[in-house]
Design a protein around this nucleic acid. Structure first.
Length: 187
DNA sequence: CGTTAGATTTCCT
DNA sequence: GGAAATCTAACGT
């Protein structure tokens, strides 16, 4: 069942935590969300929205449940989901998936030697494996082809909460959420 | 590589 | 003079 808009219209931290174990689908590829990071609207200098509303960050201030995709270091794309009610900035970076379907297709986009559980481990690897590009900027995640679904299976692992990865500003905040010791999480 | 703010230049009413 | 266009350089979930 597809996650409804009001799942996303909540505090960013809650959305980041609750996305763990949900299913992200793009076309025939899908995976379990294993690792997320929250980027807040207030008191978070690492968030792109901290600089205010610009053309690139516009979607973060818009209605929840939409995709914020940006290019990092000119190399890899990163995929975020907008949270908070409309007008309030906040988004969740999806950092890692455990692949469920479309593994062969994912592997054609990655190195052939990549083991299954690492195909979508890491924010750049994830967008590469699922072919999520800036063309999907602003896409509504309650619709096909890129959507998030409930998972009837309960979580079998503890949630681990740590500082976020690869940032300098607001680096002390505990805003990274992951399933503890999962093989598809960051190292 | 793209985005951004800030600087510099253009050019127009 | 000042707005708009263009250039530049720093930096990045």
């Amino acid at each position: 069942m597809i996650l409804s808009r009001h799942f996303y219209a909540r505090p960013t931290v809650e959305v980041a935590r609750d996305l763990l174990g949900k299913i992200l689908t793009h076309g025939e590829c899908s995976g379990l969300i294993i690792e997320t990071e929250a980027y807040l609207g207030h008191h978070d200098l690492a968030a792109h929205s901290a600089a205010g509303l610009t053309e690139r960050t516009r979607v973060i201030f818009g209605p929840p449940g939409h995709a914020y995709v940006y290019l990092s270091y000119g190399i890899h794309e990163c995929f975020n989901i907008v949270a908070e009610p409309e007008g309030q900035p906040g988004c969740v970076l999806i950092r890692a998936l455990a692949p469920l379907t479309g593994l062969d297709l994912m592997r054609t986009r990655r190195q052939a030697s990549t083991p299954d559980h690492r195909l979508a481990a890491g924010p750049g690897n994830l967008t590469r494996a699922l072919n999520i590009t800036r063309q999907l900027y602003g896409h509504d995640l309650t619709r096909q082809p890129l959507s998030v679904h409930t998972n009837p299976a309960p979580l079998t692992r503890e949630i681990e909460i740590t500082p976020r990865i690869g940032i300098t500003k607001s680096a002390d905040l505990l805003l990274r959420f992951m399933l503890r010791k999962h093989p598809s999480a960051s190292r």
